[in-house]
Amino acid sequence: MDDDGGRRGLSMGQIIDHAILDRDGHRAGRVDDLQFELEPGRSEGDPPRLVLRAIVSGPVPRPMPSLLGGIARACYRLIGVQDPRPAVVDWSHVKAIDAFVHLDVERVAAGLRRVDEAVLRYVGKLPGAGRE
């Protein structure tokens, strides 16, 4: 019975901005945006379908005014992120949702750790960076 008018289901507010954990339980950024695809109805007269496709996460995830976006990108380059753009992870990789969004991919391979990886390239070389 769908007498609640379609309220049952997954609220996007429960996902957007939440922290992401990868398949190993490591931190992998935040859900900065979600991508939807607008498909025409399956048959004549059907309403269009809005299909959830992907999670967007990482540097400069949303369109920004050009000046602000330029500043943001410059800041990312300054700390070593050469190509500051977000990762887009297909929705099929989402395995569970609680306080975190759990994925079944590895964070570096999925491009979800670009800032830490970029900083690591020079910070990791300093003596003492691997101390226990």
Binding site: I20, A28, G29, D116, V119, V123, G124, A129, G130, R131
Partner: peptide, 19 residues
């Protein structure tokens, strides 16, 4: 930003946090 953090992690474990 959802990066690694932690006071007990070495710099290699949480590079941006250290930066």
């Amino acid at each position: 930003y959802g990066w690694d953090w932690g006071k007990s992690a070495p710099a290699r474990g949480a590079p941006a946090f250290n930066l």
